[in-house]
């Protein structure tokens, strides 16, 4: 009985994830808000030990590639961490508007 309960709790804890916000910033928002784009990049690590933050640059490159030759404005950048059992997922989510010149 207790073994089953323990296994169930352990499984739930492993699968459920708690999110926390690390930082947020917003740039100026344009009048034209038709072309919304989003870029996300993430990095997994064990027990919070990370050796590189290069995943941040991936989000910027993705955002740039979605708005080639355009101007990116109204960028909402969120840096969040999702904690799974012993494992953490660090994530950068950037949403903005692409103004095609």
């Amino acid at each position: 009985m207790f073994k089953k309960l323990f296994v169930s709790i352990a499984t739930c804890l492993s699968l459920s994830a708690c999110v926390s916000l690390n930082s947020v910033s917003l740039t100026q928002i344009p009048v034209e808000r038709d072309n919304s784009i989003t870029a996300t990049s993430h990095s997994w690590n064990f027990l919070g030990i990370a050796f590189s933050n290069d995943f941040v640059d991936e989000a910027i490159l993705d955002l740039k590639s979605q708005c080639a030759e355009g101007k990116l404005e109204g960028i909402l950048t969120k840096h969040q961490t999702t904690a799974y059992f012993l494992v953490l997922k660090r994530e950068v989510i950037a949403t903005g508007y692409c103004q095609q010149g």
Binding site: V19, S20, L21, L26, T27, Q28, I29, K78, T95
Partner: peptide, 26 residues
């Protein structure tokens, strides 16, 4: 125990609803 951070996007949306023109100096 928290499973999303949607309140950030809500603030972003509400700000745009309050000001349909250009939003500067945020």
């Amino acid at each position: 125990f928290v499973f999303d951070i949607d309140y950030v996007d809500q603030a972003y949306q509400q700000l745009q609803e309050k000001c349909p023109t250009e939003i500067v100096a945020v």
